[in-house]
């Protein structure tokens, strides 16, 4: 526990607030607030996990054996075949981009989310001991990560649409769908409405993608913090400590078990929606 135990009841609630706020604060550089600053902790863990993912996937892929695959290769192949099947079901065409994009999203989001499985105080305490004032370890509980990924997907959607439809159809669809008109006058009249709807439709995608993942992971992390708070000011002399300790164990167990489902599900949803959006971008209305 980060907090000292010598706290009175009133300052205990203050200690609790401080504990929670402290846990939800990023390690920032060069300044604490504002737009022009970097979340060092997020960047660090993102880098480590991305490197791990690349090493694992590319390393295994390059050494992939046809005749006698190892256990790890078999596992990765299983995921690859699963993702490839999903992509082929959704997108009827050939694309070198969609399937690798999908598996990268799935793998990376799962890796990022998985840090939530570590005890909520473990790495922050270690960081504290190493002299880091704040440390948030789950990259997907940072809106920057999810927004960055969602925007990346957003740009890929439009690149993909341009490539598959050609610029003429791509821009023409912006003002002629979803409301189709026949006369020239009607076309011009409906163009602004169509364009507006299109902009809303496109803007909603990265927002929903990023907020969904971020919201789930942030809430999950917050609940882990709240479970940790149950024994924040614990003392061996208090009976409540034992009751709350037991409650904390049960709650922590249940939430962790439930969270295993959430981290996989959210990774899958992010992947699936990206695949669907990209497929839709290639379809002609």
């Amino acid at each position: 526990m980060l907090q000292t135990q010598a706290a009175e009841h009133e300052s205990a609630s203050g200690g609790m607030t401080e504990y929670i706020v402290h846990h939800l604060h990023h390690l920032r550089w060069p300044r604490e607030d504002g737009f022009w600053t970097l979340n060092i902790d997020t960047l660090f863990f993102t880098f480590v996990l991305s490197a791990l993912f690349c090493l694992l996937f590319i390393g295994i892929a390059r050494r992939a054996r046809v005749a006698n695959p190892g256990k790890l290769q078999s596992f990765i192949e299983m995921v690859v075949v699963f993702v490839d099947g999903l992509v082929k079901e959704t997108f009827h065409g050939t694309s070198k981009l969609i399937a690798p994009l999908a598996i990268t999203i799935f793998g990376l989001v799962f890796f990022y989310n998985f840090l939530d499985m570590l005890p909520v105080d473990m790495l922050p305490s270690a960081g504290h001991a190493a002299g880091l004032k704040y440390l948030r370890i789950v990259p997907t509980a940072d809106l920057n990560t999810t927004l960055g990924m969602a925007l990346c997907v957003f740009f890929l959607i439009h690149y993909f649409g341009l490539k598959h439809k050609g610029p003429k159809l791509f821009f023409a669809e912006m003002v002629t769908a979803p409301f189709h008109a026949h006369g020239m006058a009607m076309k011009i009249a409906l163009a602004p409405v169509n364009l507006l709807l299109r902009i809303i439709e496109e803007a909603v995608r990265p927002v929903s993608l990023s907020l969904r993942l971020f919201g789930n992971m942030y809430a999950g992390e917050l609940i882990f913090i709240l479970i940790a708070v149950m024994t924040l000011d614990a003392a061996l002399s208090h009976v409540s400590t034992y009751l709350l300790g037991f409650g904390q164990f049960i709650a922590g167990f249940i939430w962790t078990a439930f969270h295993i489902l959430i981290i996989v599900l959210q990774a899958f949803i992010f992947m699936m929606l990206s695949v669907v959006y990209l497929s839709m971008a290639a379809e002609k209305h």
Binding site: G34, T37, L38, L43, C54, L108, D142, L143, T145, L151
Partner: peptide, 14 residues
């Protein structure tokens, strides 16, 4: 904050 740009680019790189 500006972190999201780096995150996006890093994601694209991966």
């Amino acid at each position: 904050n500006i972190t999201f740009v780096i995150q996006g680019v890093a994601f694209f790189a991966v």
